[in-house]
Design a protein around this nucleic acid. Sequence first.
DNA 1: TTCATATAGTCTTCTATAAGATATAACGTT
DNA 2: AACGTTATATCTTATAGAAGACTATATGAA
Lengths: 259, 259
Amino acid sequence: MVRSASEPPVKRGDEPQAVLSDVDFRPLYQQVKDAVIGKLIGGDWRPGDKLPSEFRLAAEYGVSQGTVRKALDELTAQNVLIRRQGRGTFVATHTPHRALFHFFHLVGQDGSRQLPSSRVLSVETRRATREEEARLELRAGSRVIRIDRVRDMAGRPAIVEFIVVAAKSFPGLARMPKDDLPNTLYELYEERYGMTIVRAVEKLRAVAATAREAELLGLAAGAPLLEIDRLALSIEDKPVEWRVSRCETRQHTYLSIVD
Amino acid sequence: MVRSASEPPVKRGDEPQAVLSDVDFRPLYQQVKDAVIGKLIGGDWRPGDKLPSEFRLAAEYGVSQGTVRKALDELTAQNVLIRRQGRGTFVATHTPHRALFHFFHLVGQDGSRQLPSSRVLSVETRRATREEEARLELRAGSRVIRIDRVRDMAGRPAIVEFIVVAAKSFPGLARMPKDDLPNTLYELYEERYGMTIVRAVEKLRAVAATAREAELLGLAAGAPLLEIDRLALSIEDKPVEWRVSRCETRQHTYLSIVD
DNA sequence: TTCATATAGTCTTCTATAAGATATAACGTT
DNA sequence: AACGTTATATCTTATAGAAGACTATATGAA
């Protein structure tokens, strides 16, 4: 079936509810993909939701099931959707498992993975610094929430980190009791604030521990630490969280698979 | 078309040259994919080669073009093949560009990428240590080639690294003049020895510079360095090269994109 | 009656095929 | 040299049937 501006799609038994643009000559599956992303951004479909079936979507957009399938396949490859034969297609969620295997890269020497526990040192709300404004793409004068915490791995303190998010996007977060903050924050962002992290850019450096960091981690001042500077992005590719972790890497290593 | 052990494929105008197994009930596109990988491993198709067209492959294996396409699509997603509409499908090669953007992760503070130059300190052939045997999955007593070198970025020494490969797999490599070793070794592995690196596992830690490393890099002894421990794997998923790089990260950072 | 176990039906995604559209390069003609 | 034609390649879309998963219903035994 060919779309064109001059010939609108032929009428069938049931008319498409939400037709695609008539002046868009990109491949149909691309248009469907964008439409689906739009639904996700708009919040019509939230994490964990079940999408309409391929056939239903095909009818809605006036394309065939195979075309919808190609669009959904690509989103599945990007970890935005999850599909199970016979069950349906679902919006991916931030389970602890996903947080552990996809977004947390510090593993034991033997490659074993475990989520660290965390102890919050402080939570504060204040005006953003220049650097915070730049990283989170905030307007000048915006307010941010900063969380400082220490994380244990295998029972010993291993990570000192701070986390910065825009206060506007996370109302009430700063008023939560320190001990109620979960140690997998991405789930919280998703469930309470509708912000899903789908991508992250991490920059790693080796640094020397400050006196305070050394004390918190039980090391000598100046000991080498692995610094992970992470910017977490939403599906709209907007920065949501800036986090800098400084990690002790005698017991653990950062694992990166390239292929 | 349904395959079964009892009913062999129907004869057509031109008979399939290399039929798929009759007792394999996995999806056809999977079988085609494995067949293609087999050709790559066997060296029938080498890096840069052009594959037969989708239709030709379909005829060979007795399946339809769309089925071949699905197999090739997956291999393209894995960066094993490269496809260009109207031109054909090609076996991916290790261009300097690919080495830079895919396998080299040290970037400038502003995100700019550049390949480092390299100065070889020494090349030696000797028996493998226990650790080298384990990493490269060698038999006890195997010989290895070890290359030590320093790499400059932006005109200043930034990386000290050693590289270990099995001597048996790279005959003559150790006898090359030190200054003739290219600084992108993966191209050399591919062109001269038919070993294509398609995957790598990197483990990162923060370490303190040894006296020798500090001298080579122009730093104070004990300065923090980023250690990258990389195992490079062939398409058969066999380890080909073990490399440990220690990097100065005041001017550069290791970039990792998670999605 | 109650509980467990088939079983059929229906809904889902998955696999396979075919046909036409589109991109590219080579060649021939003007 | 410029331009159109042709051959050949991948890309896009559509369709049909296979296979997995859940639900409602029927059946049989305790």
